[in-house]
Computed example of a mutant assay.
Amino acid sequence: MNRLNAILICAVLTGCQAVPGEGPLSSEIVKDAGRSSQEIGRENTVAYDVVDVDARSARLVSNYVATALSRRFGIGGGVGQVVIGIGDLLKVTIFEAGSDGLFSTADSKQTNLDLVVQPNGAASIPYVGQVQFGGKTLEQARQTILDALVKKAVEPDVIVTSMGTASRNVTVSGAVGHSSLVPLNLVPETINEVIAKAGGPVAQPYESYVTLVRGKKTGTALLKTIIENPSENIFVRPGDQIYVTQDPRTFTVLGAAKINRRIEFGANDLNVLEAVALAGGGTDAVVDAKGYFVFRYEEADVVRSLLGTERFNAMLNKGMQPDSVGRYPIVYRLDMSHPDSLMVGQTFPIKSRDVVYVSRHPSVDLIKFLNIVARPVGVASQVSNVVDDFTN
């Protein structure tokens, strides 16, 4: 090796890290994995870990079923005891045995009264006065009216019928056929059934998100997940608010791929190989076959299973923190130099908002740096020979 080569290699070893590049090298991503801000030497860094995509990890990630709604609200069950509520429309029919009673005549022995339950939960009935209906079943309301009429009417009997259940409505709005107040039946009804009553979603299930608001609790799930996972198709309750949002799932590709941009899934499912293909694949001249990465905020259960409890707790101690919905930062690495990666990659799913990063090969930075330092001294023609000597 001549003196020029030695000088250039020395310069490379001391200054190659300063060469401009489209993101970090594979070695830099791996180096920072599992380290705290103090260990890295920078403040407020995001603590993450790297997991190799192999048969086990791909299977674990693909088999995970999100349970955002059932975990947040519980799946529910029967409707329980149905009671009268404010705004309900009731039909009260009063019968009398005699023809000259309070509610009977020679032509009819019954009287029908249409009532609306007022904000105080009561409604007025002639000769009875204010009757408290709110919180009572139809039978309890019937018995209350009957007891009040025993000494006033002639052998009375009463039937209370529900004609409208304003207190048992569910609001469905957003990207559905027609936003509406959906009245609940006396049988349990699920989210999918209620959305169907509102005309169904206007977009495909894989790009429709369902948000359920119940009291002070809020939960969001992909409609596709609700359809495929029965435990997520929970039962709704009176007063629930359901909002359906059309939000096409996308992922972002960066680095040494031929296309760097945000890309829509355009399909029900997408694996990592298909995601790379949608970006045109890696650029042969610069791509690092061992450096295909997926940056993701992953579900806590998945991260704990991948890392193991001990490693997971260690990462928490190093500063790994969840996002607003409890997911943790994780980086998946796919080594495309292994033949089985073409099989494993087919089973590893891409999720919405993932960042797929294709790392460049370290020699790219070497060539860039040698070109930079060689030109001023008039030895650019020898750069390729130096690279060969250095890399061989």
Rank of each mutant, 00 (worst) to 15 (best):
M1T: 14
R3Q: 13
L8G: 08
A11V: 10
A11Q: 11
A11W: 11
T14N: 14
C16M: 06
Q17N: 14
E22C: 10
V30E: 15
D32C: 10
S37Y: 04
Q38C: 07
E39T: 09
V53R: 00
S57P: 06
V65T: 15
A66N: 12
T67L: 12
A68C: 08
S70I: 05
V79M: 12
V83Y: 04
V83E: 09
V116N: 11
V117L: 02
Q118A: 12
P119I: 03
A123W: 00
A123Q: 01
L138F: 03
D147W: 08
K152W: 00
V158M: 07
S167L: 07
V172E: 00
V176G: 03
L181S: 11
N185G: 15
L186H: 11
P188T: 01
I195N: 01
A196T: 13
G200D: 05
G200I: 02
V202C: 06
A203Q: 09
A203K: 07
V213I: 08
V213S: 04
G215I: 02
F235C: 01
Q241A: 10
R249C: 01
N260P: 05
N260Y: 07
A267P: 04
V286S: 14
R296D: 09
E310V: 12
N317A: 15
K318D: 05
K318S: 06
Q321E: 15
V331S: 00
Y332I: 03
D335W: 02
H338Q: 13
P349C: 04
L366M: 11
F369W: 13
P376N: 08
V377L: 15
V387H: 03
